[in-house]
Design a binder for these strands. Structure first.
Lengths: 354, 354
DNA sequence: CTGAAAGCGCTAACAT
DNA sequence: ATGTTAGCGCTTTCAG
C-alpha cells in the first residue's frame, strides 16, 4: 500500500503530529463542522478571500489548526482553482549552466508561491516530448523549456496547451509563445572581434559534444563569422564527443597542440570549464599564458575569474534567464501583456588570458 | 495528430488568459464516446491495464489520438490513483553539491516516471516548514529533504504525512523515517588521520559560512578529533561568513597566512571550491605545493582533480545520495522493506597537494 | 458576507 | 473483459 494509514494513538493536544495521526487527513467539511460554518466559507477563509469577516477567518483558522488540516491542492486545482506548479524541462543538470538557470527560476517562482516540476530530457527530443506530455498532464500554470530540437508533436502540444510557455537559453529561433535568452551566435562573433582586435591571428577551437549542445555550435558559428570578417579562418579544431568538463578541456588542448604544434596563438574553448582545463594543461606543461598561448572561454564562471590570471570570457547571465522566464510566466498569469522575446544579453570579460 | 486548439469555445478577446480559460481539453468520456466503450475502459486501456483486449486498446488509442486527448492526472490522483510527484526540498542550488544530488535523484525518478517538485529553503527553517506544507498539499508520493535544522512542526508534518520521507546528506542524526548520506564527522576524522600519517604536524583550517552548513562543521569536528588523537591542535583557523566559492577560498588562505606567517604546513579547506581557491592563491604568490604548503579539500570535484597537481580531498558520493534516496522511496512505494539508514560512504583521494 | 448546489475528470470497488 | 456506481476534496456558479 502506498499510504500506510497510521493507527490510533493516544492524543496529546497541542502536538500537531499526534493530532494528525489519529485520523485520515481532515477535509474542508470537517473543519467547517468544527468551525460552525459551511465548507465554502472555510475555503474562502483559508485562501484569504476578501469577503469573509475577520472573525470567521479566525474561527476557521483555529478549527483548521486544531485538526491539523492540510489543504489538498489536487482537489482545488481540479475544481478550477489555480495551480502553482510550473513544468520545467532542462536537457541536463551536469552542465552548471542549467542549475544556475534553475536557481534564478526557482527563486522568482518561490516568491510567488510557485514550484518547478522538473524533467530532464538528456538532450533527447523523444524524451522531451514524453516529458512535455507528462508535465502537461498535471495541468501546471505554465511551462519553461530549454529545448534541444523539439519534435513537431512537442511544438503542437505546447501550442495547444494554451499555457504560458517560455523557451529559454536561445533567442536565435522564433518561439512558440515566449523566449528568454541570448544570442549565442552574437556572443561568438563578439569574442572573435575582440580577440582579433587584440592582435591574435592564429586561432583554434576546442569544443565538447557539439551535436548535443547547439548553443555551443551557434557560438562557434558566430566566432567563425568574426574570423571571416577579418579574412581569417580557424587554424585548428578539436571537438570531443563528450560532455564538457575541466578534464576534457585539458585533454582537448593537449590533443590540439599535438596536431598543430606551433602556429596557434589563441584557443577559443566551448565554455569556461573547458577553458580552465586548457589553462591547467598550460600550467602543467609550462606554457605561458597569454605569451605563448592565449585562452578564451564562455560563461563567466567564478572559477575562471579566480584563476591566478583571470580568464578572458563572455559572461552569460544564466540565473537572469531563469528569473526573466519566471517573470514573464507570472506576468502572463496575472493577465498582463508580455513580450515574446527577451534578450538578457551577455558581457565580454576582457581577462588576462587573452 | 490533432491538437484541440480549435476547440476554444466562445473566444472573443485576444487576451491570452481569456483564450486559455475558454480552451476545453477533451475528457475521458469524449474519448469513450468516440471509441464506443465506457470511460473506465478508456482509463484502463490508456493506463495499460492487463485486462483489456489488444483490440479495444487500439480502438481507444486511435480515438484518444484523434481527439488530442491528454490525461488529467489531477483528477486521477484525486480519485485515488497514484501520484508520480516527489517533493524535494534543498537548501540551495548555488552549492554544486545540491545540483549533483538532484541529478542523481531526478535520474532515478525519471526512470520510474516520477518528477521532483522542487523547493529551495535557503537554509531557513521557517521557509522549510512552509515548503513542506506546500509540497505536501499536492499529495506527492514521497518527500526528499536536505534539511538544515527542522522546526518541531516540520518534523510533525513529515511524520504525520504517512509518506516515505528521506532526509539526505547527513546520517549523523536519527531520521524521522529514512536517511541517506554519509558521516561528515567520519570524513573529517579520516582526513586528519591520513594527513598526520603523511607527516604533517602544523595544520590549519579555512572555512566558509559554517553557521549555515552544519555538514562542514561536522567535518571540522571530526578533523579536530583526529588531531587530538595525535596530541595536536589546529594552529590557525579562518572562517568567513559567506557561501563557499573559489574566490572565497583564495581570500581565506591569504588571510590565514597573513595571521600565521610561517608555522602552518597544511591547510584543510571546508570544501574543494575553497581549496582550489587556496591553490590559486599559492600559484599567484609562488608558494610551492605541497613543499611549502600542503592543501586538502572535500568533495572530490572534477575541478580539483584536473588541477596541475591533483587535489588531495575526500570524494563525496553526491549523485549516489540522490540515486539512493530515489531508490528507497520507490522501494517503499512498491511495498518492499526499506532500510532506514543508508550510508553511501566516502572515498579519500590521496592527491598531490598534500 | 455566507450558503447550496453542481460539478471538475478521473479511478476503485463492485458489478456483469 | 467490460460496465455501473460512487465518490475523491475542493471551488465555481448562483442564491440568499
Amino acid at each position: 500500500m502506498i499510504f500506510p494509514l497510521s493507527r490510533a494513538v493516544e492524543t496529546r493536544s497541542g502536538d500537531p503530529l499526534q493530532m494528525q495521526k489519529n485520523l485520515r487527513k481532515p477535509t474542508l467539511s470537517e473543519v467547517a463542522a468544527l468551525a460552525g460554518v459551511s465548507e465554502i466559507t472555510v475555503s474562502r477563509a483559508l485562501r484569504g478571500s476578501s469577503m469573509v469577516t475577520a472573525d470567521t477567518i479566525r474561527k476557521v483558522q483555529v478549527a483548521a489548526e486544531s485538526l491539523g488540516y492540510l489543504r489538498n491542492r489536487l482537489a482545488g486545482a481540479l475544481a478550477g482553482g489555480p495551480s502553482n506548479q510550473v513544468g520545467v524541462i532542462l536537457p541536463s543538470l551536469s552542465n552548471i549552466v542549467f542549475p544556475d538557470v534553475l536557481k534564478g527560476l526557482e527563486d522568482r517562482l518561490e516568491h510567488a508561491g510557485f514550484h518547478p516540476v522538473l524533467g530532464i530530457s538528456n538532450y533527447d527530443p523523444e524524451k522531451e516530448e514524453h516529458l512535455i506530455r507528462n508535465l502537461l498532464s498535471w495541468r501546471p500554470a505554465g511551462l519553461v523549456i530549454a529545448a534541444t530540437s523539439m519534435t513537431a508533436t512537442s511544438r503542437g502540444l505546447l501550442a495547444a496547451s494554451g499555457l504560458p510557455v517560455v523557451e529559454i537559453m536561445d533567442i536565435d529561433t522564433p518561439p512558440i509563445d515566449m523566449a528568454v535568452g541570448m544570442s549565442h551566435r552574437a556572443a561568438g562573433l563578439d569574442m572573435a572581434r575582440h580577440l582579433i582586435g587584440r592582435g591574435y591571428r592564429h586561432l583554434a577551437y576546442v569544443g565538447h559534444d557539439i551535436g548535443r549542445d547547439n548553443r555551443a555550435m551557434a557560438r562557434l558559428q558566430g566566432f567563425r563569422s568574426g574570423l571571416q570578417e577579418a579574412g581569417l579562418a580557424l587554424e585548428g579544431q578539436v571537438v570531443l564527443t563528450e560532455p564538457s568538463s575541466v578534464a576534457l578541456g585539458r585533454r582537448g588542448l593537449a590533443q590540439l597542440l599535438q596536431a598543430n604544434p606551433k602556429q596557434v596563438d589563441l584557443v577559443y574553448f566551448s565554455n569556461d570549464d573547458m577553458a580552465v582545463g586548457g589553462v591547467f594543461h598550460c600550467m602543467a606543461e609550462g606554457i605561458s599564458i597569454p605569451g605563448q598561448l592565449a585562452i578564451a572561454g564562455f560563461n563567466g564562471l567564478d572559477l575562471g575569474q579566480s584563476l591566478p590570471r583571470r580568464l578572458t570570457t563572455t559572461a552569460s547571465h544564466r540565473s537572469r534567464i531563469g528569473e526573466m522566464a519566471a517573470r514573464v510566466i507570472l506576468e502572463r498569469l496575472n493577465g498582463q501583456e508580455t513580450v515574446h522575446l527577451t534578450d538578457v544579453g551577455f558581457t565580454l570579460i576582457a581577462g588576462e588570458t587573452a
